[in-house]
Design a protein around this nucleic acid. Structure first.
Lengths: 212, 212
DNA sequence: GTCTATAGAGGGATAGAC
DNA sequence: GTCTATCCCTCTATAGAC
């Protein structure tokens, strides 16, 4: 690890953020990293592999940096507030944008798909742990598992990040909207035992009767 | 309109779907369209402009094709069922994938951003009309406007489409999860006037006290 | 480990014949 | 409107000097 590896990885993140997956090349990366272009191939073999490694490390680092914040979340609303903070704070650092770009490239490239799957898995695991803790006594978990909900949250966050690139205000409003909707979950949690039993019965009746 | 224009537009859609925004070039498009490469520039000036036009027309055509289906939706759950049908039916046609790819490219390219904004606007308008009708008497609209909700739905759908490329099963489960959660809205709608008034009071109390 | 130089493919875009 | 041919650029990747 000469430092060149690090420079190349950080250069890759920067290029993915500023020029997108379509503009990510060995030359652009080397230029952003301030190293010779041939070194990308010496250290990582191919550009795809460099992007793969950079995506995994970037996600792992971001999540380890925020792990304590996730641990301190005690409600659905706080989770969404943390999501909004991540959105704002990481906008310039671009870590979430990077995942979105890799995900776009992953639709056609197996190597990128593997990186995206891995990074998304890290996000989902972190979110799932929070949901499991926060919704422990909530009727919401009778509707969907913490794992399924975590994937829904992750997918939504990716969509919001992409939306943000073309309609910044709208993206912020989407996060506000979800935060506001989370009040519904809080209301459910605050119901007394009687009302709650009635709700459960109602949910059972309403559950989708068939697959279609 | 010689037919060549159409061929180029359809070729662009196909290339965006099969090779992604990073693999979309005049040569690839002309090859998919079965026409000469120079014609892309004769008819559209630049590749960016061709992608722009193709994205807009593809979205408009898809939505006009589904307009009656949107009109026939009478509940939140039906809207999500239609979303799932769109996801399955259009997976091969790839119209939604195209929008996701253009959206990824739009993060760095102004021309693509304009196309993505326009296409997303068409989607949001269609969804907003449905929500406005379907939620007319629902307490949900006291939490968020139909327009804000429509943007949230659109952003989520984009995220799901990208998720699908790396975890097909997970993406299907995300759509199921949202459909299941829509039961909550139905439960709210079915409340009697007394319980409803109580809920309203509760929501007012729970509304986020500050911006943070 | 790092550099220069380059091969070889593919890219955007144009000129000019038809 | 359509074609061929081409310019010039950028790309991945490698060879070989240091």
């Amino acid at each position: 690890m000469t430092g060149t590896r690090r420079k190349l990885i950080e250069g890759t993140i920067e290029v993915l953020r500023t020029r997108g997956i379509a503009g990510t090349s060995a030359r652009a990366i080397a230029n952003a990293a301030g190293v010779n272009q041939a070194l990308a191939f010496y250290h990582f073999g191919t550009v795809d592999n460099l992007v793969d490694v950079a995506c995994r490390e970037s996600t792992a680092e971001l999540l380890s940096h925020y792990h304590d914040r996730f641990l301190s979340v005690t409600s659905l609303r706080e989770l969404l507030t943390l999501g909004r903070e991540l959105n704002v704070t990481q906008r310039d650092a671009g870590n979430v944008t990077v995942l979105a770009q890799v995900l776009a490239g992953a639709q056609q490239d197996g190597s990128l798909a593997s990186a995206a799957r891995h990074s998304l898995g890290l996000w989902v695991a972190e979110i799932e742990a929070v949901l499991h803790r926060v919704l422990a006594d909530s009727p919401v978990l009778e509707l969907a598992s913490a794992g399924d909900l975590a994937q829904a949250v992750a997918a939504t966050f990716i969509g919001v990040e992409l939306y943000e690139g073309v309609e910044p205000d709208a993206a912020a409003r989407v996060l506000d909207t979800f935060e506001t909707l989370s009040v519904l979950a809080e209301v459910l949690d605050d119901l007394g035992p009687v009302a709650r039993r009635a709700l459960r019965a109602r949910l059972r009746r309403h559950r989708r009767p068939a697959v279609g």
